[in-house]
């Protein structure tokens, strides 16, 4: 059973469609990246999954429970960190966690450990917390009951690099324990570093979904080639996109195979060549900017 499954999910506000025909499956035990620029529909999808918004079309389920018709069952195994995190200012950190635990009616075996790992002072009122501390409190609140599905919307906001590292470790441990993480972000590097699979949304539509390793194969490489005198080619091969030309120096993105690239270079008078590693951010930016030429994998 999938941790998350949506079929033809859509959401409109008045005549404005913000999410269209989203069909997505997130398998259990997966660190799933949910990428897209601002306004792509990531938060709308998450809010539908949590029953905060009602879908205009299609359906969504968490571990087989319809998120609207069986909302309590669907949310009972979920930990959620909102993107725009707000707490009750008059409560202390401890009282906030106590309240959330009592409302969930679920033991919180990881609370003490997470509080210690994130270095969170619980005795202060939330209004005295810095934004980083509030984010840590939100993370502890989302993770302390060891949910089967963790939904994190921009979780690294306001976190310093050290705490970010702690969070990454914790999320890897969550996935290793067979639990699922939906990690929504517009920061490409952290999704690339952390996630097994990724879905990319743009303008309310799913434009790509694949394993990060598979995307990396398709990702363009940054190539710089210095041709000899009169050696600059009139035509570039298919898969090469010129980014810049400075005299005899070509700066390009390569999306084909490595043997093809090396074979083409070998047929020209080349004085120097630099081939960079696959750059996922370039691929993501391609998806962000325009509809991809390839089909969306199922």
């Amino acid at each position: 059973m999938n941790a998350i499954e949506t079929n033809g999910l859509g959401k409109s506000f008045g005549h404005t469609a913000v999410l269209r025909d989203l069909s997505l499956r997130v398998p259990p035990g997966c660190l799933f990246g949910f990428l897209g620029p601002n306004g792509a529909g990531k938060s709308t999808t998450i809010r539908i999954l949590l029953g905060l918004l009602r879908a205009s079309a299609g359906s969504a389920a968490i571990f087989g429970h319809d998120v609207w018709q069986q909302g309590v069952a669907a949310r009972s195994g979920v930990g959620y960190l909102p993107g725009d995190l707000r707490f009750y200012d008059t409560l202390t950190g401890a009282a906030t966690l106590d309240f959330l635990a009592a409302a969930r009616r679920h033991p919180c075996p990881a609370r003490a450990r997470l509080v210690e790992r994130f270095g969170l002072p619980l005795d202060r009122r939330v209004r005295a917390y810095s934004s980083g501390m509030k984010q840590k409190l939100g993370l502890v609140a989302a993770m302390m009951h060891e949910p089967r599905l963790l939904i994190l919307d921009e979780p690294t906001n306001a976190l310093d690099p050290l705490v970010r590292g702690v969070l990454y470790e914790e999320l890897r441990a969550v996935a290793a324990a067979g639990r699922t993480v939906l990690f929504s972000s517009h920061t490409l590097s952290e999704v690339e570093e952390l996630c097994d699979e990724v879905a990319i949304l743009r303008d309310g539509e799913l434009v790509a979904r694949d394993r990060v390793a598979a995307l990396r194969v398709r990702a363009p490489r940054h190539v710089e080639i210095l041709f000899g005198p009169d050696g600059y080619p009139e035509l570039l091969p298919e898969g090469m996109h010129q980014l810049d030309r400075r005299g005899q120096r070509l700066v390009a993105a390569w999306t084909g195979s490595m043997p093809d690239l090396l074979g083409w270079i070998g047929r020209h008078a080349v004085e120097d060549v630099t081939i960079g590693p696959p750059d996922l951010s370039d691929l993501f930016m391609t998806y962000y900017r325009q509809a991809p030429p390839a089909e969306v994998p199922a």
């Binding site: 809010r47 949590l50 029953g51 905060l52 909302g71 309590v72 069952a73 949310r75 009972s76 979920v78 959620y80 909102p82 725009d84 995190l85 707000r86 707490f87 009750y88 959330l100 409302a103 969930r104 009616r105 609140a141």
Partner: peptide, 13 residues
């Protein structure tokens, strides 16, 4: 005040 997300995402109707 934006705390509805916290409250209504709990397993409570």
């Amino acid at each position: 005040r934006g705390t509805a997300d916290l409250l209504l995402s709990l397993p409570v109707t």
